[in-house]
C-alpha cells in the first residue's frame, strides 16, 4: 500500500473534471545508486478511475510517467456527492484505491 492519493472531482455544467495526484516513486530502472547498482524499476502500470460502478478512464503507464504522477481528465455526467474511485497497480503487484465525492 502506498500513500493516499489526492483526488479532486468537481462537476461543472454536467461535466466532471477529475484531478489525481498519486504518491509513487516511479523508478525507471535506468537510474543507478551511488554504488553504481541499477535501481530496479518500480512504477505504476495501470490506473483506473470509476464513477460509481462505471469505468470512466483506464490508463496504462510506462516508467516514463513522472514521479508522483498527476492526471487530469473530464467526463460527461456525474453529480454532486457521487463517488469517484481511483485505483492503481504497480509492477511489484502493489495496489491502492482511494475514493472521493464529487464536489
Amino acid at each position: 500500500m502506498g500513500n493516499p492519493m489526492k483526488i479532486r472531482a468537481a462537476n461543472k455544467d454536467g461535466v466532471t473534471e477529475v484531478k489525481v495526484l498519486v504518491s509513487h516513486e516511479m523508478e525507471t530502472g535506468q537510474r543507478k545508486d551511488s554504488a553504481g547498482a541499477v535501481v530496479p524499476a518500480w512504477f505504476i502500470t495501470e490506473l483506473t478511475a470509476k464513477h460509481g460502478d462505471k469505468t470512466v478512464l483506464s490508463c496504462e503507464f510506462g516508467p516514463s510517467v513522472s514521479k508522483n504522477p498527476y492526471l487530469a481528465f473530464k467526463f460527461k455526467g456525474g453529480a454532486k456527492g457521487d463517488k469517484i474511485t481511483v485505483s492503481w497497480k504497480d509492477n511489484k503487484g502493489d495496489t491502492r484505491s482511494d475514493e472521493v465525492a464529487i464536489a
Binding site: 525507471t28 513522472s66 473530464k74 460527461k76
Partner: peptide, 10 residues
C-alpha cells in the same frame, strides 16, 4: 469521457 487528458512525464 472527453478526449482531454493531462499528465506529467519524464
Amino acid at each position: 469521457t472527453e478526449a482531454n487528458v493531462q499528465t506529467r512525464v519524464k
